[in-house]
Design a protein around this nucleic acid. Sequence first.
DNA 1: CTCTCCCGAAGTGTCGACACCTTGCGATCC
DNA 2: GGATCGCAAGGTGTCGACACTTCGGGAGAG
Lengths: 234, 234
Amino acid sequence: MTAVDLPDLRRELLFTALRGVEGSSSLAFTIFQEIAVGIVEGRLPPGHEVNSAELARRFSTSRTPVREALLLLERESLVIVPPRRRPYVSPVDMTQVREIYEIRASLYALVSELLVARASDAEIFGLRRWQGLLSADASAGDVDAYFWHNVGFRNAEVGLAKNGELQRRLSSLGLQMHRFRHLSLSLPGRLLHSVADHERLVNAYADRDAGLAAAVSRSLVMRGYRAIERAGGV
Amino acid sequence: MTAVDLPDLRRELLFTALRGVEGSSSLAFTIFQEIAVGIVEGRLPPGHEVNSAELARRFSTSRTPVREALLLLERESLVIVPPRRRPYVSPVDMTQVREIYEIRASLYALVSELLVARASDAEIFGLRRWQGLLSADASAGDVDAYFWHNVGFRNAEVGLAKNGELQRRLSSLGLQMHRFRHLSLSLPGRLLHSVADHERLVNAYADRDAGLAAAVSRSLVMRGYRAIERAGGV
DNA sequence: CTCTCCCGAAGTGTCGACACCTTGCGATCC
DNA sequence: GGATCGCAAGGTGTCGACACTTCGGGAGAG
């Protein structure tokens, strides 16, 4: 029995690399996760107030662990904690989206380079499995499944790059990016383009062509950005 | 009267982009800075215990702000806070150094690309001032001055890339990297190589050659890494 | 002499309390 | 009626206290 339900799996995918950094207390981390999911899934909209007193009441704890959770959220740029003022969900503007995509494009290009240098043939072959899932989802037009399998594919790539610091940083960016994911998937033709890119990417890995892999990786990310732009921004 | 003394200026250079993220309380941020400087300057060696109780006594505060400071330190990967155990200064091994340099090389390449696209001619010209300081320091053999002017040069570059997220992330990496800076400057010939690279870099900026600038930037960072490697690692 | 177990010292995570600050609303003044 | 001031409500930052956990050393068994 695979008793793990889908939401759990998804949360796992989002928080994997952040787990180790879990700021001592587990209560704080639980609260952190709870609020983080609320924010990235849009239930807590930008600007929404998240004050420690109310949260403490809601989670039936004292304000101490809540404050620590808020610090963790601030670290992920999901919440802004102005001194002596009430914390609120950080706004997302198009500038920030662009900035994040620029960084992600660069870092995923790095992932591809490192992967070519360090992954075994067997490991690279393992990526084909994800690729298969992706093209199946695209054919079926299942945007949601596609998204999550894409996250899985990327996590697998990052793992094969064998750079723990990079993994942590990309995970942090991924959480941020999750906030506007719905925007980047809206356009109909996009999935098929994306599938073709993944194909080219894995082929480049198999050929050990670092330069090509990096270029494809970068363009794959930037394609996502342009999709958002074309959709009219945030 | 420019009443700011050098240590203050240096601290300023290190923490600039982290200021905004200062986890609500100012007391916590002060403690954070104090300990961070101790760590990056080597006074608090890797493995050294930094428990909240003792720090609270030393700073004559309660443990609450100290705990928050420790969370900030953990965010910068300067301290490890295991659950229910005493926090300690994070160790630095050669693997981590390599990982960080790989990321930095990528991100500085990005900085160079963005700078070419976004900085004005006047702004690029401003970089020559730093370059002048650098070559003067190199001729004088003043390794320490060279290091700090180099930090200044890089901060200026990052500013011109006009990507706030990137700035914050590089600032965080810079703090980390400061821990092993002494290693990368030990070799005698290095400064002159470095000066030549800076020259090529600024010229590439002036020529608006994004590809070349990115390549030089990347190799500049990796040269630093190879210097550490050659010096025998950590 | 070594290994084990137990205990106490000291740390951690969490709590409720307190002073101070911010903010919005209503009374006050023109 | 509209602007200004002041006050109460409810937040924030910090504190000291408490139960629980970890760790190290010393008593005791083999």
